[in-house]
């Protein structure tokens, strides 16, 4: 254990995993409660398309990943708001279209690029100091925004129309939430990969959802599970030489099914009038 922690790359990996575990699990609370699960999946693939384009044209991957992610969530938001089509339909179309773009960009590359596949499957153990700073900066931005607007974000997750009727700028908050989802996905791409990042957003929050009837407790439990699974998954992947993304996600999944089994909601009782 001590030997493992003495390596620089392990220290960076654990810090990166802890940050990603924290932001994914916090934003996951709003994703689960507001019913935006599919948006996370769609955004991950859109951001991956941005990464592939960046490698194709020789640009840094983060800005293009952010651009693709933001464009996807905002177009999705506008489509839902205008009532043109249901959220799952619009995100489904953008999800597959951006994945097609990603495959196209990979096909246009002259040679095999292992780094691109690192963003698809996750490679936390290869996080560079520069990438860690990028992750830390974006994490700070996401967590700061959530902290600043937590009461409004909780209200729109509870009932967006009621929030708007009560004087909360609900529409603006909805777009802020979509933006934060996109940023979270981009931050997490390198750590768990485009395929599994969605699990990191969904599973810790869903695990916490099983265990409490309070918003505050759900958020606290979600962060606890997210950070625990991310850092423990990295350690397991080092010790047993496993791919890090799947190790993190499978650990989180185990915790989720345990929480379903132990959930006090299974013992739900109605208080008489």
């Amino acid at each position: 254990m001590v030997e493992m922690l003495s390596y620089d790359f392990m220290q960076r990996s654990l810090w990166a995993a802890a940050l990603v575990g924290a932001i994914c699990s916090v934003i996951g609370v709003f994703v689960v409660l507001r019913g935006l699960a599919f948006v996370g999946a769609g955004t991950a693939h859109a951001a991956f398309a941005g990464v592939t384009l960046a490698y194709l044209v020789g640009l840094p991957p983060f800005p293009l990943a952010i651009l693709f992610g933001l464009a996807t969530v905002w177009v999705t938001g506008v489509m839902e708001e205008k009532g043109q089509m249901k959220l799952d339909v619009s995100i489904g179309i953008l999800y597959t279209a951006t994945m097609a773009l990603a495959i196209l960009f990979i096909g246009l590359m002259k040679q095999y690029n292992a780094e691109v596949y690192g963003y698809l499957f996750g490679s936390v153990l290869s996080v560079t100091p520069e990438e860690l700073w990028g992750i830390a900066l974006l994490s700070l931005l996401v967590l700061g925004a959530i902290l600043l607007f937590s009461k409004e974000l909780f209200f729109i997750a509870f009932d967006q129309e009621m929030a708007e009727a009560s004087g909360v700028p609900a529409r603006g908050m909805f777009y802020l939430l979509l933006t934060l989802i996109a940023l979270t996905v981009v931050v997490s791409l390198k750590i768990v990969g485009a395929i599994l990042v969605f699990a990191m957003i969904l599973i810790p929050a869903s695990t916490a959802y099983q265990l409490t009837h309070s918003l505050r407790q759900m958020t606290a439990y979600s962060v606890l599970f997210g950070v625990f699974c991310a850092t423990s998954g990295v350690m397991l992947s080092y010790v047993w030489d496993l791919p890090s993304g799947p190790a993190i996600v499978l650990l989180a999944t185990t915790l989720f099914f345990t929480s379903v089994f132990l959930s006090p909601k299974r013992l739900r009782r109605v208080v008489p009038s």
């Binding site: 409004e152 209200f155 009560s166 909360v168 959802y209 009837h213 918003l215 759900m218």
Partner: peptide, 20 residues
Amino acid sequence: NFPITVLEAVMMGRYGVLGL
């Protein structure tokens, strides 16, 4: 199934009044 206590739900009534 929304995880919210009675007091948390009632406190939401203050959010619009308080502003950002």
